[in-house]
């Protein structure tokens, strides 16, 4: 029933804060690091603004996966906004399990401004994960799945520095 493989191009939504996290994306761009082009980035003033409703809306509107990019723990410009984001991600994962989408489709990464490669790595990791999981059940029968390439993927290489909630659980 799941359409996976070449014909499936995951739609990802990334919420970032406007500090470290967003800048890490800029850095990735400046360094010309390639990452899956399937990610829509939405800037929040701080990941402390992460709201389960935004995440659920993203899924309702067609996202196959959602991830949050926050400043490293201890380095939030609003002191503990990223910790709140992490707690909400854990909570929302449970909700996603309950509604049948699966908590695996959501994650959070902690990156500092200079970590362009890790930004790309996060995108790749989420892209790969969603490729494996297949499209969101809400998109089954949908028309967005194109026949194009599954996004150019280039591994940034640096696998240290970021930690995902998924990985630590």
């Amino acid at each position: 029933m799941q359409r996976t493989g070449e014909c499936f191009e995951p739609q990802l939504t990334a919420f970032t804060c406007s500090y470290c996290a967003y800048m890490s994306g800029d850095t990735a761009g400046a360094m010309r690091i390639q990452y899956p082009a399937t990610t829509k980035v939405i800037k929040l003033p701080c990941t402390g603004k992460t709201d389960a409703r935004y995440i659920m809306s993203a899924f309702e509107d067609g996202a196959d996966g959602v991830y949050i990019i926050a400043c490293p723990i201890g380095n939030c410009h609003h002191v503990r906004g990223n910790e709140r984001a992490r707690a909400r991600v854990v909570h929302t994962k449970k909700l996603l399990d309950q509604v049948g989408l699966g908590g695996e489709r959501l994650d959070i990464f902690f990156l500092s401004a200079g970590m362009g490669e890790s930004f790309a790595q996060a995108a790749k990791e989420m892209n790969d994960r969603i490729m494996r999981l297949g499209p969101s059940p809400l998109r089954m029968g949908g028309k967005e799945v194109g026949a194009g390439e599954a996004g150019e993927q280039k591994n940034g290489g640096d696998e240290t520095g970021e930690q995902s909630v998924e990985a630590t659980q």
Binding site: R53, P137, L138
Partner: peptide, 18 residues
Amino acid sequence: EKEAQLMASALRIASRVD
């Protein structure tokens, strides 16, 4: 209000998945 919005969303999603 927040929880009501979230609950509505969760019910919509769950029913679509079902």
